[in-house]
Design a protein around this nucleic acid. Structure first.
Ligand SMILES: NC(=O)c1ccc[n+]([C@@H]2O[C@H](COP(=O)([O-])OP(=O)(O)OC[C@H]3O[C@@H](n4cnc5c(N)ncnc54)[C@H](O)[C@@H]3O)[C@@H](O)[C@H]2O)c1
Ligand SMILES: NC(=O)c1ccc[n+]([C@@H]2O[C@H](COP(=O)([O-])OP(=O)(O)OC[C@H]3O[C@@H](n4cnc5c(N)ncnc54)[C@H](O)[C@@H]3O)[C@@H](O)[C@H]2O)c1
Lengths: 214, 214
DNA sequence: ATGTTTTTGTGAAAAAAATAACAAAACCCC
DNA sequence: GGGGTTTTGTTATTTTTTTCACAAAAACAT
């Protein structure tokens, strides 16, 4: 898929822009934005160029306009509805998190297999897993978050796809198979941490070698 | 940084291998592994080639040997100690998660600013944030996880770096600045979800256009 | 007005990553 | 033990991503 990284960066820019806006900026230059998310100014302009975003020579970009534009590209100008499956550690944490709502993503419900964890009167209702298919269909949900154990993840995904879900964020550390009409994005936190460990080890090793070569 | 993606995939391979091993395999071919994590067999062999991992022509790879080798490269043959800062939604979820320990990562303590959340007798003790620096130094902690609000994240990182932390996994949705001797890896879940939304929208759009062009 | 400075937008170049291609080794079967 | 088959390991090729570089537009100064 071409420009995958650009899209990810667009989200980052939007994020940074919101912060910069609350800091009182009305306009922004490619190098401010670059600095805010840690890329080169060229990269910023290139990304914008790819998606047809333009600013003003010497005047930079109007923040409000830019955010609007980014939201349009990212399909975020209408509220997006999503569900979470699995009301365990991570599922519950996500359900309580207010950062999604701030970004126009509304978690409509959580689905859980364990009847003891069901609580349909909560702010974000926790419903029984059996109700998931119907809920997805009647509420036309397109986005799902999988927070169930590895062993049930594929099964949950299959049900989601069957019901009409088109995009999934998966926390189970396993590769899920989906038909090509459904996007699956995996978040593997162990892997992320291992990665940190690897690169920090590498840095330490390099530092030691540099010391020897003095 | 060169080969960054290869390193990430090495962790994936290791993960898949553990699963394949419990399924009874003793040997594995590049195409099995490729299939398990969703890449091409060439990619698998290329990755291994880069890190000097070799198998047997026609015999594939001995799983145990391979895991051992990957662990060595990833610096995982000794237990890695880490701390979490912030005992909120995500911090608590991570502390309870058993997936880290399975992978040789031990969370030694959680640090929290709110005295009401401190509970030093818990399985993984939740200590007061004031004790962090000393704990890191006396226990020689190199890895930290940041699970505090955006507004305190940079401050926490600075303290960590000061105390000797060399690698950080950050959940706050903000770019943190670290000196180059400390690696910072960001996990931004809102962004991950936005990404899913973008690409699923794209797919739907493409599907619609394809329909028109029949 | 005219020159100077700043900053964008993009095409060209470089770097990095992924894929393909295939020789060589290892095994199998007869 | 020779011919066929499988699978690695690596080099070559292609694709993708990032960076560079600079012309042109806009703002400013004088
Ligand atoms: N907790 C973490 O910090 C963390 C970190 C990284 C990855 N993960 C992954 O996230 C997933 C969930 O982790 P967790 O720690 O929240 O586990 P958990 O056991 O706390 O929660 C899982 C929940 O899913 C429910 N469940 C099981 N099957 C279900 C089904 N078919 N339909 C609906 N609900 C079902 C269980 O009843 C349970 O409440 C796991 O795959 C785990 O590997 C978790
Ligand atoms: N909860 C989620 O699902 C989720 C998802 C994505 C991102 N995040 C991010 O993760 C971070 C934490 O989110 P959360 O939902 O767990 O928030 P939370 O408010 O539940 O938890 C934050 C905790 O950090 C503590 N804290 C604040 N300053 C501290 C300091 N200096 N030292 C130690 N502890 C301190 C607070 O007392 C609180 O207990 C935030 O940056 C958030 O944006 C959370």
């Amino acid at each position: 898929m071409k420009n995958k990284n650009s899209v990810i960066r667009l989200s980052r820019y939007k994020n940074a822009l919101r912060r910069l806006k609350t800091m009182g900026f009305a306009r922004i230059f490619s190098d401010n934005l670059a600095d805010a998310i840690g890329v080169t100014p060229s990269q910023v302009r290139k990304d914008f160029s790819i998606f047809g975003i333009s600013g003003n020579k010497r005047g930079g970009y109007q923040i409000d306009e830019l955010i609007e534009h980014l939201n349009n590209i990212l399909g975020k100008n209408t509220i997006k509805h999503a569900i979470i499956v699995g009301a365990g550690n991570i599922g519950a944490a996500l359900a309580k998190y207010d950062g999604f709502e701030k970004d126009g993503i509304k978690i409509d419900a959580v689905f859980e297999a364990d009847p003891l964890k069901v609580s349909s009167q909560a702010v974000i209702p926790v419903l029984h897993a059996d109700q998931m298919i119907e809920f997805i269909q009647t509420n036309d949900i397109r986005i799902g978050i999988i927070a169930v154990p590895e062993s049930s993840a594929q099964q949950v995904l299959d049900l989601m796809v069957l019901s009409g879900v088109k995009g999934v964020l998966n926390f189970a550390p396993i590769r899920l198979r989906a038909p090509k009409e459904c996007v699956v994005n995996n978040v593997n936190l162990v892997l992320e941490l291992e990665n940190v460990i690897y690169f920090s080890n590498l840095l330490e090793k390099e530092a030691q070698e540099a010391e020897i070569n003095i």
